[in-house]
Structures are given as C-alpha cells and as structure tokens.
Design a protein around this nucleic acid. Structure first.
Lengths: 225, 225
DNA sequence: AAGCCTAGGTGTACGTCGTACACTTGTCAA
DNA sequence: TTGACAAGTGTACGACGTACACCTAGGCTT
C-alpha cells in the first residue's frame, strides 16, 4: 500500500481573522454581497467552512469586520482646515471608499448595531462640527440632518446601474411618454446634456456634492443665526 | 370503513394575490421582514408553500407587491397648495406610511428595480417640482438631492431602537466618556432636554422635518437665483 | 350527458444556507 | 513524556426558495 503522497507541497499559510476579512472583502468586491457565503469564503481560502468560525464568531460579525475595514479607509480629518471644507473633504473621502466597495452601504443599512469603529468615526465627525463653532444642540441636529450621508451614502432610491438590454429599454421609454410624462421629460433633457457625464447622462459625483453643499450651507446659516 | 368526515367544515376561502399580500404585510408588520418566509406565509394562510406561487411569481415579486401597497397608502398631492408645502406634506405622509410599516424602507433599499407604482410616485413628485416653477434641470438636481427622503426615508445610519438591557447600557455609557467623548457629550445634553421628546431623548419627527426644510429651502434659493 | 380544459392547490425533492457539536492534529510548555 | 491548547475537520440539522409532476373540482363545448 503506497503511503500518502503530499500532493500539496506548500504548507498553506494559516488562517487569521485578517486573512478571512481580506478574502471576504475581495469576494464581495468582485461579486456583490449576495455572493458572499461562509461556504464560498471557506472554499476560496481552501479550508472547510467551519474553520472560519475559529476566527470570526458568525456571519454577522464577519460583516461587521468588513465594514470596519472600509471605514478605516476613510481619510482622517484634515488639520487646520476650515470646518466646512474639512467635513466636506472627509465625506467625499468616505464616498470614495464606498464606491470602492459598492456592497458596503447595503450591508451597513442592514445592520442594527454600529461597530466601535463606526462609532469612532461618528464621534470624530461630531468633533468636527463642535470645532466649527456649532453648539451642542445644533451639532446634534446636524448629525441627524446629514444622516447616512456622513458616511458617503448617496441615498438614491435606485442605483440605475441595472443593465437591461437596449431593445427592452427603448420600448420602455416609448411607452413611458404617456404613463410617466415627467420622468420621460427629465430623461429627454438629461440624456443630451453636455458630455461630461457618467453613465446614463447624469453625473453622480456632481449630484452628491450639490446635495452635500445644500445641507452644509443650510447648517451654516443655522449656526450664524 | 368509515368514510372521511369533513373535519374542516368551512370551505376555506380561496387564495388570491390580494389575500397573499395582505397576509405578508401583516407578517412583516408584526415580526419584521426577516420573519417573512414563503413557508411561514403559506402556513399563516393554511396552505402549502407552493400554493403561493400560483399568485406570485417568486419572493422578489411578493416584496415588490408589498412595497406597492405601502406606496399606495401615501396621500395624493394636495391641490391648490403652494409647491413647498404640497411637497412637504406629501413627504410627511410618506413618512407616516413608512412608520406604519417599518420593514418597508429596508426592503426598498434592498431592491434594484422600482415597481411601476413607485415610478408613478416619482413621476408625480417631479411634476410637483415643475409646477413649482423649477426648471427641468433644477428639478433633476432636486430629485437627486432629496433622494430617498422623497419616500419618507429617515436616512439615519442606525435606528437606535435596539433595546439593550439597562445595565449593559449604563456600563457602555460609562466607558464611553473616555473613548467617545463627543458622542458622550451629545448624549448628556440630549438626555435632559425638554420633555417633548420621543424615545431616548430625541424627537425623530422634529429632526426629520428640520432636515427636510433645510433641503427645500436650499432648493428654493437655487430656483430663485 | 360526456368529455375535456384549466385554474388552483398538493407533495416531493433539490441545492443552498448558517452553524452546533464532537473529533483530530500539530505545537509548545512544563 | 505529558498534556494543554489552538487550529482545522467531518457530520449533521433545520431553515430557506422553488422546480416539477401531480391531483382535483368547476365550467365550457359538443
């Protein structure tokens, strides 16, 4: 009887919480969060599913850890800058992190409890408002008014990234002229705007900054009143 | 051999899409959306799981139908009112509908494609901005800036309705004084504010209206420029 | 009256999921 | 040498959504 041959010569570096998180990030980045299962993740790491549970309590904690990684990618507050530009820049940095990991906003929304890392981010944001001369009460209102936009969330209802085939889409727009005249009108004007647009004729970055500035300017007026 | 006795005398009214939706709404209202499964829903209707599929294509379509029911609860636009109060009132009505069905916002966020009912609501919202004298372009920006708030979404990051036991909470706040000083400070001032508050010392309705007015006032300024 | 179509409800089965629990194995301290 | 402990394994369970074949009762055509 032949003895077992080591078909796998490399000793396979051991798992670790960090390695698990990295692989989970990669999986979610590549295929969306719905393609991230404990079993698939284990498979990716060439390990049996239950091995993950030695490094992560359960799937929920895994998701929390993944969010922490994303939040930690957000730049620290700029030093010495005026409050508004400092907050603005930080939120734009958060948005960049979120765009790098499109699954993150959905995951955050689906969770009920914030992780300590997220709390720390919120705490630092509160500090930025206070440092900008906002009273405690007004800072409180500001945090609520900004809401998830503080984390760079776009807060759009539907990300129109769904790629339907062109034919069906054309037919849809055709029938829309009668049933949804206003949306149709909007679509017409937007689609032949200037060329500095993303996707279906609409610059998401511009829209985000516009809404952000609307809020920040409004808050500033409240502060100075 | 005794013939089978009808132990079930009432003929059990037949299923229908509407009956399925109503039962699904009830289930989600009662126990949250995570307690809504096709199997449980079928059980509630005293029917075998697969029977549902004669009235609903699949679970996703069921969720879409549930959202439609919620959206249809939103009041129609007030006639003859000024644009800002009309939009304001309608959004507040949407918020009331959402508070009646707390699962609805999460479900909407998790979907990629809007239902025709939701599209109709958006269309009518666009119409309200146009009727208020907004240009097409500015209306477009307004719709983006309002985002999911148009549907009454609160856009808070974490709904602090999680009821942890008091002891753990007290301990948490204790350690927080050092690690999260700003959140702690906010908590201190908010918790002994005036008594016109809801829940943990914070009037969600007030915060929602404040943020809403911030945006509407800002948009109005853009329009008049 | 006879036959048949069809809408609506049933039963069984498959593949996937998260994870509990008992086990082996490899490593290092005493 | 022992024996504790951390890390990985194997098996199993109860959910889940839903494909597919089947039954059955009512109403229509002939």
């Amino acid at each position: 009887m032949a003895r077992r041959i080591d078909v796998e010569t490399r000793p396979r570096e051991p798992l670790s919480r960090e390695r698990v998180l990295r692989a989970a990030l990669a999986l979610a980045d590549a295929g969306g969060v719905e393609s991230l299962s404990m079993r698939r993740l284990a498979h990716e790491l060439e390990v049996v599913p239950m091995a993950l549970y030695k490094h992560v309590a359960n799937k929920d904690e895994l998701l929390g850890g993944m969010i922490d990684v994303v939040v930690e990618e957000i730049d620290p507050p700029a030093v010495g800058a005026e409050w508004k530009t400092a907050i603005r820049e930080r939120i734009l940095s958060a948005r960049r992190a979120l765009l790098r990991h499109p699954w993150a906003s959905r995951v955050m929304e689906s969770r009920t409890e914030p992780t300590p890392t997220v709390l720390a981010y919120m705490d630092s944001m509160i500090g930025m408002f206070l440092a900008g001369g906002f009273s405690i009460d007004l800072t409180h209102h500001a945090m609520h008014a900004m809401g998830s936009r503080l984390m760079g969330f776009t807060q759009e209802l539907f990300n129109d990234t769904a790629d339907t085939d062109a034919e069906m889409e054309a037919q849809m727009w055709g029938s829309m002229a009668d049933t949804l005249p206003n949306i149709y009108q909007l679509y017409l004007t937007v689609s032949h705007d200037d060329a500095s647009v993303v996707g279906p004729g609409c610059d998401d970055q511009f829209e985000f900054e516009l809404a952000l500035d609307l809020l920040l300017d409004g808050l500033e007026k409240l502060r100075d009143r």
